[in-house]
Structure formats: structure tokens, C-alpha cells
Design a binder for these strands. Structure first.
Length: 451
RNA sequence: GGCUAAGUGGCAGAGUGGUCAUGCAGCGGCCUGCAAAGCCGUCAACGCCGGUUCGAUUCCGACCUUAGCCUCCA
């Protein structure tokens, strides 16, 4: 069965084909580690995670690389403000990032290279570009010469003239052309710096990705899939293609894969608008499953407008699935190919809303059909939703014995016909975050997902 | 201003040249001491104007609106 994915460079849904028959190489731009990860970082990791799971179901070897940018002026700035070293900042946020992603059941990539571990490779890559005549040294900087690379703009579909006309920035005087971008720049004493043929300095923003990719897959090999947020198409990925195509003769990458951004109140999150939603906050009040489902509720290429109701809806749905899943008593392994339909849905450009619809339909038929119930559990699991293990919210720590004794008291009151008292106890439980249901012969309880 | 996307029912959000999205909410019913949950049924949409077509929400063009990018950004 084939996988179709939308390729940004052709602007079409294409049948995915890897360069090697049983292997896939995928690179996704990871975080710059200078602050707490937000919901947008989560989407940017979660979308490739679903693709990774899908690819793994069809290919023997999937090499999934997600880098860690631990050299960046934003990190230096954070270090300066907090009176800490650059490494203290980056190590702290690497740890938080990885913990947050693990909480969301996002699988670890095969490799997570760091910029600081690749400085010699980066310098080597820049030397190759210089040697091939696509870069120049000016005032201790090394710059990519965009006028030398004739396909510049092929990803973002803009011409150099358009970019120059639309430019809102002042042109640095060491640049030959306003669109030329930095491969290497000098560092002063307060900035992290490395020895290079061009003096103490540090790499520009784009070169790290190109260098790490080529270092891992080999200069003359083509990457199968390169992913990242929509907002990275220009200039970051455009510049990567330019560099990567000019350091060796091989094509840089076959499939470009971009996820839409998360909007809050219909606007992109930004510190100035004060609408940044941090994962730490979200994870304190919601189950990983509901956050995950909420992030998958829109197609990955669409913008996702985040609101309270997004989470409420997804947590209701997850609760419905989980209750059903827990009623399953059979052996899941007695059925074959339970995930087949889910795989086929995702194979069409990762259509997660369609996948959720499928789960809803399974939930409906699962009441009468054990196989569908098993399929619900397995299919949800395929997209990383574990229905069998419920994770209570961290703030919802409850004395279960107390809950049971309150329920018993209410049962007694109901038997005695004292419904006033029974309702009072029910209200009290609700205020504690406990939802009860009177089923035939017994009363069951669960955490209230809205709480 | 330039570039790139998108505009679907009360909300979220897929999809399709001619029959159902789905979820939440609403409405009617079953169930219940009453609820909650569940179940059954039900209402409702394709920004605007043209064009192509026997037929368009779906294809084409203009217009309007929104978002993103053009500066760090996932």
C-alpha cells in the first residue's frame, strides 16, 4: 500500500517513494532550547510523530532525525538575563522539552543531534560551499551568494526580485545582495564562539541543519523527507536547499513536509500578544490523551485554532473511548490486522480528522462487536492514544476510600427514599471532581474530565 | 506593498462533479426517583459574482474576507 503526502515544493499530493527500497530518512527541525515548549512546539513534534509511526509500519528502517539547536542568540540572551551560562540554559530546556514530548507519547526520534556536537562538520560544510564558489567571505562573515544559485526561491515560490522589493530590513553593508544569508558570523567575548578559518565565531541559523543532515546520510545522498512548521518554509528551508544543493551535486531532499501553525484567538502565539500556551501548564490540567487528540483534530496542514472548547471536546471524546476500551475483556491478540483501516486512512496525507471519525464509528459499533472494540483500542494506539491506561491530572489526587464511603452513604439514602440527601452527596462529589453514574445494581465513579 | 494558503451548518472540522461526513451543541423520544452516561431519531452548510457543465459546495476566473511568511519564530 502506498503513502501519499503533500509535497510543499510541488504543491501537490504525491505518492511517497524512498530512495532506498526498505529505508526512509526523515529530518525535522527541532527546538531552539531557550524557553519552555509551547503548544506549537508540540504540534511540530506530534505531526512528524504520526508520520514516523506510519512509516515504521511500512518500512523496515526509518531513520528519523530531529535536531536540537543549542547555539542561538536567543539562548545567549536568556543566559545573560538569568545570569546563567549558555549551557545551563540549553541543558535545562533540552530536559524539559524531552520530558514534555514524552508525556505526550511522542516517540523519540532515532537521532537528536546537537549543534554544539557538530561544529567541525558545520565548518567543513561551509568550506565546501566556499570551495564550490557559492559563498564569499566579507568582514569576518561568510555569506551565501544567492545570485549564484539559480533555483533560489523554488520552495517558497518567490523570485529574488520579489524578495528584494518586499524586504523591510536594512541591508547590512557586508552583504553583496540583500537576500544573501549568513553561514558564519563572528562572536564577541560574551557570545559562544568556536575557532574557524574566519576567526572566532558561530554558525548562522540555517547551516546547522544542512550540515547535520549531510553528516548523517552522506554528502552524496538525498534526504527522503524534510519537515517543519509552515513558518520555516521561508527563509529557513529555502536557504537549506540552496546550501545543500551547493555543497554537493546530489539533490538535497525529495519531499518537503510542513505543518500548519497553532493559532490562539485566531492569532499566532507570541510573547507580545501574551497568548503563548505552555505545555507544562496544559499537562498540569489535562490528560496527555486529550491534548494529543485536540492537536490531531485538524488536518496537519491547516492552521489549528486553539481554544478551551478544543480541549473540552477532545477530552469528552477520549473519555467515551476509554470507558468503552476498559470494558474489553478478550485477548486483543486474537484478531489480526486491526490497524489496517487506520493505516489506510493515514496513508492519504495523514488525514487525522478522518481517523478520528473512524474511531467514533468504531466506538459506535464496538458496543455490539468485540472485534470493533479491539480495533478501536489498537487503532487509537496506532496514533499514540492509549485508551487502556488513564492518567489522572496531577492536581486531582483523591482519597478513593472517602469517595467509596460517600457513594455508599448515598446508596443508603436512595434506598431509604431520601433523595434530597442523595443529591447533596452527588453535588459534593462533583465539586471534588468526581462524576458518578447509577448503573444497574451499582454506582460507578470516574474523574470528571471537565474538571 | 509582495508572496503563500484558506473561506463548509450554532461551534469544531473532513470530503465530494449528481446518494450519509464525523464530533460537540440543539430538538424529539427511550432509560432514570431526578440527574449523568448511554441508546434511537431529527434539524441544519458549503464567502460573493460570473464561467464551464445536463448538473458545481467540488473545476476555472474576478472580487471580498481571514491567517501565515517577507524580521526571531514550530
Amino acid at each position: 500500500m502506498t503513502i501519499k503526502i503533500f509535497n510543499t515544493i510541488s504543491k501537490k499530493k504525491e505518492i511517497f517513494q524512498s530512495t532506498q527500497p526498505n529505508s526512509v530518512t526523515m529530518y525535522v527541525c527541532g527546538p531552539t532550547v531557550y524557553s519552555h515548549p509551547h503548544i506549537g512546539n508540540a504540534r511540530a513534534a506530534l505531526v512528524p510523530d504520526v508520520l514516523f509511526r506510519l512509516l515504521k509500519s511500512k518500512y523496515q528502517n526509518v531513520l528519523y532525525i530531529r535536531n536540537i539547536t543549542d547555539v542561538d542568540d536567543k539562548i545567549s540572551e536568556a543566559a545573560f538575563k538569568q545570569n546563567k551560562t549558555v549551557y545551563e540554559i540549553s541543558n535545562k530546556f533540552i530536559k524539559i522539552y524531552q520530558d514534555n514530548m514524552a508525556s505526550l507519547n511522542i516517540l523519540e526520534p532515532t537521532l537528536q543531534p546537537k549543534v554544539t556536537d557538530n561544529m567541525l562538520n558545520i565548518i567543513g560544510t561551509i568550506e565546501k560551499i566556499l570551495m564550490n564558489g557559492f559563498a564569499y567571505v566579507s568582514d569576518n562573515h561568510v555569506l551565501f551568494d544567492t545570485n549564484k544559485y539559480k533555483n533560489y526561491g523554488e520552495l517558497s515560490k518567490r523570485t529574488l526580485d520579489e524578495m528584494i522589493d518586499g524586504a523591510r530590513i536594512d541591508i547590512a553593508d557586508y552583504k553583496k545582495s540583500p537576500r544573501d544569508f549568513i553561514l558564519w558570523k563572528p562572536s564577541d567575548r560574551n557570545q559562544p564562539g568556536w575557532e574557524s578559518p574566519w576567526g572566532m565565531g558561530r554558525p548562522g541559523w540555517h547551516i546547522e541543519c544542512t550540515s547535520m543532515i549531510k553528516n548523517i546520510i552522506g554528502d552524496d545522498n538525498t534526504l527522503d523527507i524534510h519537515g517543519g512548521g509552515n513558518d520555516l518554509i521561508f527563509p529557513h528551508h529555502e536557504n537549506e536547499i540552496a546550501q545543500g544543493s551547493c555543497m554537493s551535486s546530489s539533490k538535497y531532499c525529495n519531499f518537503w513536509f510542513h505543518n500548519g501553525i497553532v493559532l490562539v484567538n485566531k492569532k499566532k502565539m507570541s510573547k507580545s500578544l501574551g497568548n503563548v500556551i505552555l505545555l507544562d501548564d496544559l499537562l498540569g490540567q489535562n490528560t496527555p490523551n486529550s491534548i494529543r487528540l485536540a492537536l490531531l483534530s485538524a488536518h496537519y496542514r491547516q492552521p489549528l485554532n486553539w481554544s478551551d472548547s478544543t480541549l473540552i471536546e477532545s477530552s469528552n471524546l477520549i473519555k467515551k473511548f476509554s470507558i468503552l476500551a476498559k470494558s474489553y475483556t478478550g485477548d486483543i491478540n486474537s484478531y489480526n490486522n486491526l490497524e489496517e483501516e487506520m493505516i489506510s486512512i493515514l496513508s492519504d496525507d495523514l488525514n487525522t480528522p478522518e481517523a478520528i471519525k473512524y474511531l467514533s464509528e468504531l466506538a459506535k459499533s464496538a458496543k455490539k462487536n468485540q472485534r470493533d472494540l479491539a480495533a478501536l483500542i489498537k487503532s487509537a494506539d496506532f496514533i499514540g492514544l492509549n485508551l487502556l491506561v488513564s492518567t489522572p491530572h496531577t492536581k486531582n489526587i483523591i482519597d478513593e476510600d472517602l469517595v467509596r464511603s460517600m457513594i455508599n452513604e448515598r446508596v443508603k439514602a436512595r434506598v431509604a427514599g431520601d433523595f434530597k440527601k442523595a443529591d447533596k452527596i452527588r453535588d459534593k462529589l462533583l465539586s471534588m471532581g468526581i462524576l458518578i453514574k447509577d448503573l444497574e445494581g451499582e454506582t460507578v465513579w470516574d474523574y470528571n474530565p471537565d474538571n
